[in-house]
Design a protein around this nucleic acid. Structure first.
Lengths: 193, 193
DNA sequence: GTCTATAACGAGATAGAC
DNA sequence: GTCTATCTCGTTATAGAC
C-alpha cells in the first residue's frame, strides 16, 4: 500500500531517481546529468533507456499511476468502511510528504502549461480516476450513514483532491507535516455525519 | 480590488511580464530573453533593473504581496459581513484563474525547494499573513452566527488557503474555471451555520 | 548496455561603448 | 538607460567505439 517502491533493473533505478527529483524539484529543474551522477552512469546511458526527457516523463506518470491505483486496490480489498478508506487515501499523501515529496501529478499540475502534450493527457487521467475512486467512497459513507455528502458527490471528491494537493504543497514549504494532518482532519470532520 | 494591475516605468513593465510568466510557467521555466523579447529590450537592460533573477523574484513577491493585501484592505474597508469578505477573497483567485494564472505564491510553493532563501522567507510570510486575515474573517462569521468554525480557527483558515490554492492549480490544468467555482462552493457550504 | 566525445542550443551574467 | 559583444556554464540529444 505504498506508492514509492524500488524499481528493478537500470530503467527502474532511473525512474526511481527521476521520480524523487521531480517530486522534490519539479520536472523543469532536474537534468539527465543529475540522475547520471547519482547512479554513476553517463548521460547517453540514460538516453538509451529513455530516448527523450518527455518520454521519461510519460514513463514516470505511467508507473506512478499504476502504483497509486495499486495502493487504492489494496485499500479496497481490505473491505474497510468508508471513513477508513478515506483515511488511508490521505495517508498515501502523508507518507510522500514525510520524505519532502509532493504528489508527482500535483507537481505536474503546477507545471502543466510547460509539459509535453502526452504528459498532460496522462496527468488529467490520473486526477479523473482519483475522483471516480473518491466519489465511490463518499457514496459508501452515505450508505453507511457515517458521512454527509452534498450533491453532486463528484464535486466533493474534487474538493478532497484539491485540498490534499494544496495541503501537501504548502505543508512542505513550511517543512511542517503536522500542518497537513491538522488541515486534512478539519476537512474530514466537515464530512462526518 | 485587483491583484494584477499595470506597473509604471521600465521596471514596472518588466515586473508585469515576469509576473505573468511565473504565474503561467513557473519561476524555473522562463528567462530574461523571454521578457526582453516581449518588451523589445535586450537582456543587459533587464539586468540593469534587476541585477539577478533571484532579486527579480524577490521584487515579484514583494509587489504581489503588497497588491494582494491592498485588495484585502479594500475588502475590509467596505465593512461587509464575513460571508461577503470570504466570497471576495475567493474571487481574487477566480480572477487570476480566468486568465490562466495561478497565485504567484502558489507557484512558488510548488517550486519551493529550488528557490533562493530570500524568496522562501517572503513566500512563507505571504501565507502567514493570509492565514491571519482569514482567521479574523472566520471569527467574525462566528460572531455574526453565519459560520460554524472548529477550533483552532487558524487550522480552518489554513484549510481554506490549501483548498483554494489546490483548486486553482487543478482547475487550470483542466482548463475549466467552473471546477474552481464548484469546489470552493462546496468548501464554503461546509462552513455555513 | 555503456562509454567518450561532441554538437547545438539557451541560460544567467558582465564589460564597456553610447 | 540601453546597446553590442562576449563569457561561462548547463541543457537535451546524437554519433560511433567497445
Amino acid at each position: 500500500m505504498t506508492v514509492q517502491t524500488e524499481g528493478t533493473g537500470t530503467a527502474g533505478q532511473i525512474l526511481d531517481v527521476a521520480e524523487r527529483l521531480v517530486q522534490t524539484r519539479g520536472f523543469n529543474y532536474f537534468s539527465y546529468a543529475d540522475i547520471a551522477a547519482e547512479l554513476a552512469l553517463t548521460k547517453p546511458a540514460l538516453h538509451y533507456h529513455f530516448r527523450s526527457k518527455a518520454l521519461l516523463g510519460e514513463a514516470l506518470i505511467s508507473r506512478y499511476t499504476d502504483r497509486f491505483f495499486g495502493a487504492l486496490n489494496t485499500i479496497d480489498s481490505a473491505g474497510a468502511d468508508a471513513q477508513t478508506r478515506l483515511d488511508r487515501f490521505i495517508a498515501l499523501y502523508r507518507t510522500m510528504l514525510s520524505s519532502g515529496r509532493m504528489c508527482l501529478c500535483g507537481v505536474f499540475a503546477a507545471e502543466y502549461p510547460t509539459l509535453p502534450p502526452a504528459m498532460c493527457v496522462a496527468v488529467l487521467d490520473f486526477f479523473d480516476r482519483n475522483e471516480t475512486w473518491l466519489e465511490a467512497v463518499l457514496r459508501q459513507g452515505v450508505a453507511e450513514q457515517t458521512m454527509v455528502v452534498a450533491e453532486p458527490a463528484r464535486d466533493v471528491a474534487r474538493m478532497i483532491i484539491d485540498t490534499v494537493e494544496g495541503a501537501t504543497m504548502i505543508a512542505r514549504a513550511h517543512d511542517d507535516p503536522e500542518r497537513f494532518n491538522r488541515v486534512t482532519e478539519q476537512m474530514l470532520s466537515a464530512l462526518r455525519a
